[in-house]
Simulated assay, not measured.
Amino acid sequence: MNSDYAADAARACDHFDEWQDAHGVRMHWRRFFELESAVELAGKQGDADRQIRDNGITYNVYADTRLGPARPWSLDILPFILDDADWRHIASGVSQRARLLNQMLADLYGEQTLLQQGVLPTELVLGHPGYVRALKGHRPAGGVFLHIVAFDL
């Protein structure tokens, strides 16, 4: 790729481009393309498309009757690659959110300050099928209520 073209394109964009910046293709993408050629990627994309079609993997858009009830699932085999600095920023936020959720669980099974102050609706929490009333007042070893957490980035 012509690096002058890439730099001009990056400067012309008024949005973040995960693939390139003002200096051209970002280093973590360059490393990826050193491992995977365009031909290999095209073959892998074809394999994925074929497997989706052969297995009938679809989704529905109920409001859109124009294309019918089921559409083939779309899967882009290019990964979402982050550099170290971007990942550290995201990891910091994810860790902060997990700590907050653990503290909320500790309160909901403990003093219930969030409920008493009206921060969370009582009926939402106590009426939730996942809330185990019998564990009210129980404190797990190490104070860890939240053992697994997943976030959609």
Rank of each mutant, 00 (worst) to 15 (best):
L115N: 03
V149H: 08
A12Y: 06
L78M: 13
M27W: 14
A91H: 15
D107P: 02
P72Q: 05
N60H: 05
L115S: 07
R133G: 04
A12L: 06
L75M: 15
V39Q: 01
Q96I: 13
R139Q: 03
Y131P: 09
D152S: 12
G56P: 02
Q103Y: 08
D14I: 05
F16V: 11
P69R: 10
K136Y: 08
L108S: 00
V61D: 10
L41W: 07
M104D: 08
Q96W: 13
C13L: 15
D8W: 09
R26D: 04
A106V: 09
W87E: 10
L82I: 02
G127D: 00
V132R: 11
R139L: 05
P79I: 03
Q112N: 01
G110D: 04
A48C: 13
Y62D: 12
Q116I: 00
V39K: 01
V144I: 11
Y131V: 01
Q103D: 10
S92I: 08
D8H: 13
A106F: 07
A141V: 08
R66D: 09
E111W: 05
L41N: 00
S92L: 10
D4L: 01
T58Y: 05
V125N: 01
A70Q: 15
A9F: 10
R11T: 09
Q103G: 10
D64V: 10
W73T: 13
D47P: 05
H89A: 12
I77W: 03
D76A: 06
A6W: 05
C13M: 15
Q117P: 12
V25A: 07
F80L: 15
D83M: 04
S37E: 11
Y5F: 02
Q20P: 00
L135V: 14
Q103P: 02
V119N: 03
D83F: 00
S92A: 13
G118L: 00
E123V: 00
D64L: 02
A10H: 00
R31K: 06
Q45M: 06
V94G: 03
A6K: 06
N2P: 10
V144R: 15
G142P: 01
G142L: 04
N102D: 09
S95V: 11
H89G: 06
G43I: 02
V132N: 09
L146I: 05
Q45H: 02
A10T: 07
A106N: 08
A70L: 15
P140M: 01
R26P: 03
L124E: 00
H28Q: 07
P69H: 03
A91S: 12
D21I: 00
E34S: 13
A6M: 03
A22N: 02
A134W: 04
H147Y: 07
C13K: 08
L35R: 15
D47N: 12
I52K: 05
D49T: 08
A70M: 12
N2M: 04
L135Q: 05
M27P: 15
G110A: 06
L153T: 07
Y109S: 09
S74F: 14
E40D: 12
R53N: 10
Y62W: 14
R31C: 03
G130L: 04
E40N: 06
A91M: 06
L126A: 02
M27N: 12
D8P: 14
E40Q: 07
L101P: 00
S92H: 12
A22K: 11
H15A: 15
F151C: 02
T122F: 14
H138A: 10
W19Y: 13
L153N: 05
R97T: 11
I52L: 02
A141C: 12
S37R: 02
L101N: 11
A42T: 12
